[in-house]
Amino acid sequence: MLRVEADDQLHPPHYPWSHDGILSSLDHASIRRGYQVYKEVCSACHSLDQIAFRNLVGVSHTEEEAKALAESVNIEDGPNEDGEMFLRPGKLSDYFPPPYKNDEEARAANNGALPPDLSLMNKARHGGEDYMFSLLTGYCDPPAGITVREGLSYNPYFTGGAIGMPQQLFDDMLEYEDGTPATVSQLAKDVSVFLKWCTEPYYDDKKRMFMKAFLIISFLTGISWYYKRHKWSVLKTRKLAYKPPVK
């Protein structure tokens, strides 16, 4: 076939995220809302296997809340003394349980498409949170001349345009516990921030370390500069004078 190929996908615009600044931390209220979105929407198909319940403590939830969340899921443990695996309520140290036992089951349940693990998704796609936000809010009708196979949806931000995941976010599909209006954009923004945190749980520490390191190193640089000048001042200010011998 001969045709003028268009770009493979649409590049997302850059959104003014509140954590963009050089010293800006992540929006933790947004992380908490994003966790709710992940739990109630995404986790039906997407695993998040790098994050444990304990990671939520002090970030988006208190210890008691995180414990309660962990206890609400059953985790397979074992073997017991009879050599059998058993189910027990989750503990803080447990990782988020995956929706499917293995990739094959996930494919079979999703029309052949494998829902990727979201733990490192922010770094795994160009554009990071801009991409995720655009993808989640960017479903639209395909342009003329493009037919999307049955079971796929058109999304201009997805490579190739045809994505296995249909639109997932809808206005008012869930109720935020802090009363934030749950519009599609709001849901997408929160879950993007949550996944940003999942990818970089050290994000806030990184910024704080930068500030500390910058202050200390610049202070020490100043001192050593002064000290060097001070020590060299004798040498640098000496004058060499040639005095010809008087005849």
């Binding site: 045709r3 649409l10 959104y15 342009p143 003329a144 001349g145 201009p156």
Partner: peptide, 25 residues
């Protein structure tokens, strides 16, 4: 026809996205 409007859609959406991104948040 072999023609598709993908590039035209991308060009338009790229422009509109930039404008949306300024005030949406």
């Amino acid at each position: 026809t072999e023609e598709t409007c993908t590039q035209e859609l991308f060009d338009f959406m790229h422009c509109a996205d930039k404008c949306v991104a300024k005030t949406l948040f």
